[in-house]
């Protein structure tokens, strides 16, 4: 696909006048994506094997949010989701909400979400700015995976170790059970996000 005509049209816009950042639109995206994480978290949790944390689509929502909204709006959406959930809205997996989750096995995972969205978003933004469509989906997949393994898993392991009174080593082994699901979820998130960026380029155009 040739890029030049779109660039010239953007340039024309730029030389003339631009409205600049559109904060109402940003706020709407943040609110709706926080809701998206909640709705994905509502799908019945699938507890696997001999550990306490259910596999949910919650993390899929967080990955998609980072990949689609970029670092700051992504972190804001994940943060809004986390804070409203902690205040008592039943939006965590299993319709749970409130500070009570901080005592549970998934505390670390939940607290990691804004950071995950931030890391995933930073990487995704640099991928999308380079703009090679062919490698977009695979690179977005790596961005989602990086966010997950740099933030979600380390903090999740730490949380389990503290709340379940087990060693970090043991918590690490519980965590491994999530890895295959995580790879699948990252693949789905990357594919979906690449699709959205093609269908709705305005989301990034505003940044």
């Amino acid at each position: 696909m040739s890029q030049s005509p779109s660039e010239t049209s953007h340039a024309r816009e730029g030389t003339r006048r631009t409205r600049g950042r559109n904060s109402s639109q940003d706020i709407a995206l943040i609110g709706v994506f926080a809701a998206l994480i909640a709705v994905l978290a509502f799908t019945p949790p699938i507890p696997v094997g001999n550990f306490g944390v259910p596999i949910t689509l919650q993390t899929l929502g967080v990955a998609i949010t980072g990949l689609v909204l970029g670092p700051w709006r992504g972190a804001a959406a994940a943060g809004l989701y986390l804070v409203l959930g902690l205040l008592g809205l039943p939006i965590f997996a299993g319709f749970v909400g409130g500070f009570g989750v901080l005592a549970g096995p998934s505390a670390g995972y939940l607290l990691a979400f804004p950071l995950t969205a931030l890391i995933t978003g930073l990487l995704a933004r640099s991928v999308l700015r380079r703009g090679t469509v062919r490698w977009q989906a695979p690179l977005l997949f790596l961005a989602a995976l990086a966010g997950s393994f740099l933030a979600t898993h380390p903090l999740g392991i730490l949380g389990m170790s503290i709340n379940l009174e087990v060693s970090l080593r043991e918590a690490f082994f519980f965590d491994i059970v999530f890895w295959p699901g995580d790879v699948i979820k990252s693949l789905v998130a990357a594919g979906a996000a690449a699709l959205v960026h093609r269908a709705a380029p305005w989301i990034l155009a505003m940044r």
Binding site: N22, L29, V32, L36, V39
Partner: peptide, 17 residues
């Protein structure tokens, strides 16, 4: 998930507008 995501993007755009 894809229809949900596209629906969310659309809803966000309408709300923002």
């Amino acid at each position: 998930t894809v229809p949900l995501l596209l629906g969310a993007v659309d809803h966000a755009r309408n709300t923002g507008r």
